[in-house]
Design a protein around this nucleic acid. Sequence first.
DNA 1: CTCTGGCATATTGTATACAAAATGCAAGTC
DNA 2: GACTTGCATTTTGTATACAATATGCCAGAG
Lengths: 232, 232
Amino acid sequence: MDGSVFPIARSTLPEAAAERLRALIIEGDLAPGAKLNERELSERLGVSRTPLREAFRMLAADGLLVQLPNRGAQVVALSAADVRGAFEVMGALEGLAGELAVARVTDADIADLRALQGDMEAAHAGRDLPTYYRINRLIHDRLNALAGNAVLEQTYRTLNARLHALRFRSNLNPAKWDLAVAEHRAMIEALAARDGAALRDLLVEHLRAKQQAVLDSMKNRDDKNLQGGKMP
Amino acid sequence: MDGSVFPIARSTLPEAAAERLRALIIEGDLAPGAKLNERELSERLGVSRTPLREAFRMLAADGLLVQLPNRGAQVVALSAADVRGAFEVMGALEGLAGELAVARVTDADIADLRALQGDMEAAHAGRDLPTYYRINRLIHDRLNALAGNAVLEQTYRTLNARLHALRFRSNLNPAKWDLAVAEHRAMIEALAARDGAALRDLLVEHLRAKQQAVLDSMKNRDDKNLQGGKMP
DNA sequence: CTCTGGCATATTGTATACAAAATGCAAGTC
DNA sequence: GACTTGCATTTTGTATACAATATGCCAGAG
């Protein structure tokens, strides 16, 4: 008996409901602009309206829903300006994270990231896009964590979550995919060289390509449906 | 009759309650680390527990409260690391805002800001600190708005709100006050010169002084009470 | 045909009741 | 004295009921 503590994870219905709603938004089941009906959703999720409304508040704070008094909640439909604005801020955050990371990164960190890059390249070679995305996310989270700034991590995570549905739906064509893989490689090498300025530039440029993919995808799919959703 | 629309402002009790709680936190009435009792607060605010709980969710999302399942809500007590992290991110955001602003600023904007700076210097000369702070806030909001990025503005506002209580309580001594006024003057001149890099540096440096004031104030007042609050 | 008013119904906002979990205190045991 | 157990009370979480607002539809007037 080594005295280790294994706290029992606790959750509440609002938290679980928010999680489920997030997934429904990302998958497009709840489409941008859709009005959320409390009665239907409470039946659908098997909870009463009270925790559901608390979940709405959480998602509204995350920028996924907009709540209008007496008119209920609606899924945010991001405009191109919203997307540009969000990417611009995320670029500043990733750039800062990159600069901070080079001051704190260890050789073991770099080895881990190189291993992840290897896994990601294997996924790329095997055309395994879901695995590629999962590892991609892991690498970026790792880089952000290396910055040692929890506020930065949390802020980035919130903004990223707003864009998740759109990014889930944007295409990654083969040429762009090849380029993204190469960009990741260059990032890790800049980090290994502890070159903050280079890493910052690479991260910002990489994100710009993601931004363009999302905007292209929005233009192609939603030209007629764009509603100029209000960024909360 | 010119057809102008004057929509009637609507609010809900959760929103009003959140606003009141925010003020109570900023004023220190609800101290860092304080546990919030739903029954007492609902009586105090004259609302039932349901909107109050929704208000808690909103404030938790803003980083002012932390909610633990089955244990209720507690006012966040920011650690020095939290403060450093938040200022670091805000520095990146202000820097970005400064660079973006120089591309969009008009001569009329600059004239407005110069007028505000004049008002602020008058408040400084008359030792009118509340007015000084009010105009100070106005100038910074104006600069952030000139960036033309709503996400940036909203992100900055949220982070700033977390620090508001601490900044409300930190001292501005005469030498630092003089310096702050001079820094503002230099910022507006950099903006007028459309010098993005200079403006960025000035904004970041200015914010660093604010950070130091907050950290000093925390150190002096709360050395014994620091609880290493968890940044949500 | 268009517009307006009235009314029924649906939806959202809030209060209240009930259930579950946490906390505090007293009594008993070692 | 320290620790454990049991129980009452308090607090938090959730469901349900009630109130307020919004929406939709129909009939009547012009």
